[in-house]
Structure formats: structure tokens, C-alpha cells
Amino acid sequence: MRTEGETEGEGGAEVEVQAGAEAEAEAVSEAEGDPADGVTVRDAISAPDAQGKPRRTTRRFPLFTRDTARPEGGGRAAPGDAPAPARQWPILTVLSAVALGLLLTAFDAFRVGTILIGAALLAGALMRWMLPSVGMLAVRSRFTDMLTYSVLGLAIVVLALMAQPNPLLEIPFLDDTLHFTVR
């Protein structure tokens, strides 16, 4: 008669290995604490089970994340079989308008170029709000992207309209503030 620890030929070695694997799995199970035992794991979301798979998944991230979720609306703006530029047309539209604005600014049409840059950012905010999928134009959440694009675009347009010489927009309290601080 043989016990689990005894080996006889190749078949006996298999029995010994299986018994060792079962004992190790029980030790891991006891260390982690099975929910059936009434012991809870400190981080049940990321703690793996005996097979190495997470017990529970969530969209909330623990303190140290290993991966981040794609922003809402971050999918392709065109079907997957479309060529790469067609899939990313929203970001390419904004970048093309900004490039044209920078080119105009470089060729001494400062006000028109900077207004075009601000308008491109405002158009990006509008696309982020209206379109369900905007590809790489989505960086963060929809609200954060819209707020960032809108504030930056509006600031650039207002500053372009206030630029000297011959400003198209004059804000009196800013002029008074400048004269008060320079005196």
C-alpha cells in the first residue's frame, strides 16, 4: 500500500506533485481569505483568486492604477475599415485650423491668425459636445475637454481682439488696472 508521499515509478511522482499543488492552493486561499470563510481581503477588487483572475472588477481605480479607461467619446469617429485620417477627422480638423492660424500669424496677419486659432479650439469644444465619438480629440471626460477647449479658445479670441495697435475690443477696467499698477 502507498500513501500520497510515496512514489513508485512515473505515476507516483504525479501523485506527489498533485498533492503539493493542492496544499499550495489551500495555503494561498487561507492567506488571502476566502469570502466563504468570513475573512475579507483588504483590496477585494484587485486581489486575484487561485487561478490568478481578479475576483471583482470595477471602473473605479485604486490608489495605484495599472491602466486607465478610455475617455467617453474616445472611440473612432469613423468605421474601423476607413483609412486612418478619416477615422480621426475631428482632431485633424482642429489641428489643420490651428496650423493655418499659425501660418497666417507668421505671415504678419497676427489678429486673423490668432482669432482662427481660438476659433479652432472653440470648434473642438463644439465637436466634443455634439459628436458621440471624436477619436483622439477626447482626452479626458467630455465635461473637462469641453471646459478646457472653451476657456482656452475664448481667452485666445478675446486677447486677439484686444491686441495693439487698434484693438477691436477695449475693456475699461483692465486699462485702469494697468495704469494703477505701473504708476
Rank of each mutant, 00 (worst) to 15 (best):
M1H: 08
E4N: 14
G5N: 09
E6K: 10
E6V: 06
E6P: 04
G9Y: 13
E10I: 14
E10A: 15
G12C: 04
A13G: 07
E14D: 12
V15W: 02
V15R: 15
V17I: 15
G20Y: 08
A21W: 09
E22M: 11
E24G: 00
A25G: 01
A27I: 01
A27Y: 06
V28G: 02
E32H: 12
E32L: 15
P35S: 06
P35F: 05
A36G: 10
T40C: 00
T40N: 03
T40Q: 08
V41E: 13
V41S: 15
R42E: 13
I45T: 13
I45N: 09
S46Q: 10
A47F: 02
D49S: 05
A50P: 02
A50S: 07
Q51K: 11
Q51H: 12
G52V: 02
K53C: 02
R56V: 09
T57I: 12
T57P: 03
T58G: 11
T58S: 15
R59L: 13
F64E: 07
T65H: 12
D67S: 14
R70M: 10
R70D: 07
E72C: 00
G73D: 08
G73L: 11
G73A: 10
G74L: 10
G74W: 13
G74M: 05
G75F: 14
A78Y: 09
A78I: 03
A78T: 05
A78N: 10
P79L: 06
P79F: 14
G80L: 15
A82M: 13
P83Q: 09
P83A: 06
R87Y: 07
Q88F: 05
W89V: 04
P90A: 08
V94A: 10
S96N: 10
S96C: 04
S96G: 15
S96K: 04
A97R: 05
A99Y: 04
G101Q: 11
L103T: 14
T105W: 14
A106C: 01
A106E: 09
A106F: 10
R111K: 13
L116R: 02
I117L: 09
A119Q: 03
A119W: 00
A120C: 05
L121W: 03
L122H: 02
L122A: 03
A123G: 14
A125I: 03
R128N: 08
M130D: 01
G135V: 02
G135E: 08
G135L: 04
L137C: 06
R140L: 15
R140S: 15
S141N: 08
R142C: 02
R142S: 01
F143T: 14
T144M: 00
M146L: 10
M146F: 12
M146D: 11
L147S: 11
T148C: 06
S150N: 10
S150I: 01
L152T: 03
L154S: 15
V158K: 04
A160R: 05
M162D: 01
Q164W: 06
Q164A: 15
P165M: 00
L168Y: 12
I171D: 06
I171Y: 12
D175T: 12
D175W: 07
T177R: 07
T177W: 15
L178R: 13
L178H: 10
L178W: 14
